[in-house]
Structure formats: structure tokens, C-alpha cells
Write a protein that binds this DNA or RNA. Structure first.
Lengths: 337, 337
DNA sequence: CTGAAAGCGCTAACAA
DNA sequence: TTGTTAGCGCTTTCAG
């Protein structure tokens, strides 16, 4: 019943030595066709599967790549995960998953855990990348790439899109549509690099168009629906009715839309709303969300390909890959009359 | 830099034998406090991490559980995944992920792959469970639980909710709201057990309320947004305007809503729509989706706890766990006047 | 081309 | 309580 067949059994049954069997399953050294066939037959017959544990133990290759995510059920995350998974499979790697709930402690723990499991590389998806983690990671010398909304100038492998430029573009897009009083609702706590960059993009666009920055229009929340809802509600409760709201995350943007509607305004007729990421729901929602498209699947695919290359000691020409974003013009933003 | 420290190094440095080191790290046999402390110190100093591969090789326990899913980015799936992940961590298991895209071949392959990786158990999320897989799985004698919308009477461990009853209840709910012409849009191809059960629930509710079954109101699609959209569109194009639509999946339900709106009708004023699963988006959408709540997170949690128990040879009183569902009364269904 | 033997890092008898 | 030793299943020299 169970897979107790070992290389020994195969060897015995085929009347050869275990090394010969090893050779045929790995194609590592020449073996007479005749013998080879014999071994192959026995393998098929017995249903023998080499034990990768034993193999890994000697080769020091586990064919495992660890993936650390803040939360599997976040759509930003799981679309990336799809890309990771698929490419991993192509290269015969398996994915070891670790959820951190954005907890710093947990992230560190996960790194350890994965390391212990002998993963050959790690892809880390994290909202906020911290020097501490990087040091830690680099110390253990395990190939890693980061997918993070922050492309800060840490000396690490990252795949991302240009936040500043994307934010600038979307803001400008909004301005071009006639909006001036543009709320800016961010999806992470203040003071991270990410926010700095985005804020910079936002401010720059405003400035270039001679719109005075109004700090009251800026809110910090989280990536979730509820956060967006909350931030928008606060704004409205403060009596601020913007022409448009730019929310740097789609789920939060949808939250914001709902807050707007609950307050008795219409989207986009009264207030336009733009999102960020172009997550699956973005095109399912009504109104369909105008947003910044990030190639989530590709980001995952690229990231893992990078660590695989790293594992194979290939040289990457770039530590930082920036994938192109695109503004997706849908229904939640309209021209302001 | 790298984690090359082995048990030997620790032993040498602590001036003890490797077995002693093994004992302290596993707490398996009494060791003098003094010696123990010494060893612990050295471990801390060197940053030694036991190699689980080597350990697994001898203990035959990999601390790995395989999870096979149709697609990570499906919200039904990833909410379950969250539950799985969390409980796994509690029990010190790691998750090996395999995506199948609902491909039968791929599912079989994944089982093999995971098996090869020495997983101790498998949780399988699959739309359709097939006898072939079950046989295969049972043949390799590896503990497994299935999370599937079908609770068919296979002799396997499953966690699910009662489809028939849930469908019945929701249909009845719709009828009680004054709807008679109720479209029934299913999220999988015809002829699976799942559909049979659901259909039975639907038909029964109709019958009990003296509503004649109209086959034209029944459509088969898939779980995705597009599928729901498509099915609904077809219906409308055929000139059938139902009072309500019951779509057995939230994303598809949202697709249906969009199709309805695109055709110039309003939800829920003209047509009510009900979903199934109560996925994250269900409460984000506008109108908020009236749906059958399935405890996704819990389903994952329960499923993996079951396989862990199975792994530990504990006896489960029930092969089949049915978790309670609940009708969530939100905005997409209203009383018909 | 093939086999014998060493050893990957660890656990678990078995002695001492 | 501790050390010695024999493997776990496999790859990989090294002889032949």
C-alpha cells in the first residue's frame, strides 16, 4: 500500500546495484540500454518514487521555495501567488507558504521556519520592508526577492512598479478630468517610504497644475475595504466633499465608494473615485473601478524567476525590476463639469 | 554565513556526544541540567538549526501537509486557505501548495508530487471529487480530507455544508419574498453530484410551494464572474426576465447582477439576486449581496485539524463534518410587490 | 560501464 | 545519565 519501495528494492529486483539505479533515475552517468530498460521496468512495476528527502540531504537541494505573504486572502496577494505558483511548477519547485498577518515578529519567525525547512529561496510579499529583515535575510545567505509596494533603495532584489510615477499619473489624470479637490487616501500607515513616494507623486501633480495642497484631504488607512470606508467616512463627516478621491488600493477604494454612497452621494456623478492595483474585483464592481493596473500575476512570476536564477547562481543584470503599470479607464471616474 | 552548523559541530563544541545534543533539542531523554545548559548555550551561540530533512528521513515525519486547490486566487479558496494556514502553524506543520486549475490530470499529478515530497497528509479543495482520485489517494494510504461542495457518499473524510438544504432554504427564502419565477444559475457544469443536490433543493422548494418547474430558468456556468454574467445574459437575451436569480456562487452572482444592470434592469428593484458562499466581496458589493454564508475559514480549519488527527492516528467520530450555513439577508433581494 | 563504500544530518536502540 | 553505533534513502567518489 504505502510507498515503502526504496532504491534498494529496485536494485535487488533488477539485479543491479543501487548506484546503477541512481544513475538511471538521474541520467547522471552512462548505463547500458539493456540494463537501463530493466531498471525502468522494475521502477514502473513497483511504482517506485525516489525519496526527495534523502536526495536533498545529500545534494543539499530541496526544490522548495518559501513564500511569505501578509495574508493569503488579500486579493493583491493571491493574484501574485498565482503567478508564483505557476512558474514554480514550471521549474519543478514547490511552494512553502507562510502567512504573517503583517506582523513583524511573525515575519522573522517565518523566515526562520522556511530556512529550517531548507528552502532554497524566498519570495517575500510585504507591505513594509524593514532593514532588520533584510539584514537577517542576507545574513543567512538565502536568495530572496521582495515584492513590495516600496521600492526603496535597499540593496535587495525587488519587483515592483514605480509608485511615485503611477501616483503622479493618476493624480494628473484626475486633474485633467477637471477635478481639483482630490482626496488622497492611502492604504498604509503614515511615514513609510511607500507613502512618501506616493505622496510625492500626488503633490507633484498638484503643484504642476497649480493646485494648492490641502492636508485635510489626505488620509491614512489600511488595505482593506473597511479602512477605505472609514477614511472616506471621516472625510465626509468632517464636512469635506472632494471632487474626486484617489485611494491607493482597490478594496479600500470600493470601501470609499460605499461610504460615499451611504452618505447620500453618487459615484461617479458627485464624486469620482480611483483605485490602485487593478485587482479582480475592480472590474466586477459597479461602477467599474478606474484604477492603476499593476501586473500582479507577472510580478509574482518575475519574482520567483529571479530567485530561481539566484539559486542557480545566474547573474541578474538588475536587482530591481520595475514592471509597467497602466491607468485603466473605467467607470468610477468621470469628467467634472 | 550559511547554516552549515550540524549537530556534530554543536556536540564537539559542547564537548558532548551528538546523541546528547539530539536529546536536548528533542527533550527525548533526561539530560543533566548542567550539560543541557552547556548545549543550549552552544546552540544559541552558533545559531544552529536542526536539519529537518535529516530528521524526517529517520523519523518519517516531514511536518508537511499538502494542500491542493483549484486556484489560489479564487476567493472561495483563499478564505479557506487562511483557515488551513493558521491551524497548520498552530500544530507546527507547513503547507505545501499545489494549484490545479481544476484540471483532473493536474490534480493527479499534484497528489503524486506532494506524496513524493513526503507530506504527511493532504487537504484537497476541489469542485468536483472523482472516484478515481479517491481510489488513488486511498491507495497511497495518506491521510486526506476533502473540502468540496459535494458531500457525496464517497467513503472519505469531508468537510462541507449541506448543499441541498441550503439551496432549499434560500429558494424558499426567495419564494417567501414573493418571487415565483426564480432563475437558478449554477456554478458548475451539469451532471455532477453537487448540481444534483442543489437542483433537488431548488426543485423541492418550488414544489412545496406549488410553483411549476421551468427548465428554461436553469443555467449552468462556472464559479467566475464572467460565467455568471454570461449565464444571466443568455437568459435575458432569450427574453426571460425572472423575478429573482439564485446564483450558487458569489462572484458569479455579481456577474449576474452586472449582466442585469447592463441590460437595463435594476437589482434588486426589478430582479432580486442571491448568491452562495458569502465571500469577502459579498458585503463589499453594492447592493450588498444576500447570500448563503459558508464558514469558509472554519472549513479550512476543521479540514486540516482532521488530517492532523488522522496523522496522529486519533480516531474521528465522523468522517463527514457538515458545518452550519446561514442565510445572510442583505440588500440584493427584496420583497416583490 | 558497473559496484562497493562513504557519508549527507539526524534519531534511536543498545551498551556502558 | 551518557556515548557508540547502526541505519533512514539517496548520491557520488573511487576502484575495477
Amino acid at each position: 500500500m504505502k510507498n515503502n519501495i526504496t532504491i534498494k528494492d529496485v536494485a535487488k529486483q533488477a539485479g543491479v546495484s543501487i548506484s546503477t539505479v541512481s544513475r538511471v533515475i538521474n541520467d547522471s552517468k552512462p548505463v547500458t540500454d539493456e540494463v537501463k530498460q530493466k531498471v525502468l521496468d522494475v521502477i514502473k512495476e513497483t511504482g517506485y518514487i525516489p525519496n526527495p528527502l534523502a536526495r536533498s540531504l545529500v545534494t543539499k537541494k530541496s526544490q522548495l521555495i518559501g513564500v511569505i505573504v501578509p495574508e493569503v486572502s488579500d486579493s493583491f496577494v493571491n493574484e501574485i501567488l498565482n503567478g508564483i505558483e505557476e512558474v514554480a511548477k514550471m521549474y519543478d519547485y514547490d511552494i512553502l507558504l507562510a502567512n504573517t498577518y503583517s506582523d513583524k515578529e511573525q515575519e522573522l519567525k517565518s523566515i526562520n521556519l522556511l530556512r529550517a525547512k531548507q528552502v532554497e529561496g524566498i519570495v517575500m510579499i510585504s507591505w513594509i520592508v524593514e532593514q532588520e529583515h533584510i539584514n537577517y535575510m542576507q545574513n543567512c545567505g538565502i536568495p530572496a526577492t521582495y515584492i513590495s509596494k516600496t521600492a526603496r533603495d535597499y540593496d535587495i532584489y525587488t519587483v515592483s512598479t514605480s509608485n511615485k510615477k503611477a501616483t503622479f499619473d493618476m493624480t494628473k489624470y484626475l486633474i485633467d478630468k477637471g477635478h481639483e479637490k482630490i482626496a488622497f487616501i492611502m492604504t498604509s500607515k503614515d511615514d513609510t517610504i511607500l507613502e512618501m513616494e506616493r505622496l510625492a507623486g500626488y503633490e507633484e501633480a498638484l503643484e504642476q497644475n497649480n493646485i494648492k495642497l490641502d492636508k485635510n484631504l489626505i488620509k491614512y488607512g489600511g488595505t482593506e475595504y473597511e479602512n477605505g470606508y472609514q477614511s472616506m467616512k471621516e472625510l465626509l463627516d468632517e464636512g469635506i466633499i472632494p471632487h474626486a478621491a484617489f485611494v491607493t488600493g482597490d478594496e479600500a477604494a470600493i470601501g470609499a465608494i460605499n461610504a460615499i454612497c451611504d452618505a447620500g452621494y453618487r459615484v461617479p456623478e458627485d464624486i469620482s473615485v480611483a483605485g490602485f492595483n487593478d485587482v479582480k474585483i475592480a472590474k466586477m464592481y459597479k461602477p467599474k473601478l478606474t484604477t492603476v493596473h499593476q501586473p500582479l500575476y507577472d510580478m509574482g512570476a518575475v519574482a520567483i524567476r529571479m530567485v530561481i536564477k539566484l539559486i542557480n547562481k545566474e547573474i541578474l543584470d538588475n536587482k530591481k525590476v520595475e514592471l509597467p503599470y497602466k491607468i485603466i479607464d473605467r467607470e468610477s471616474v468621470i469628467e467634472r463639469k
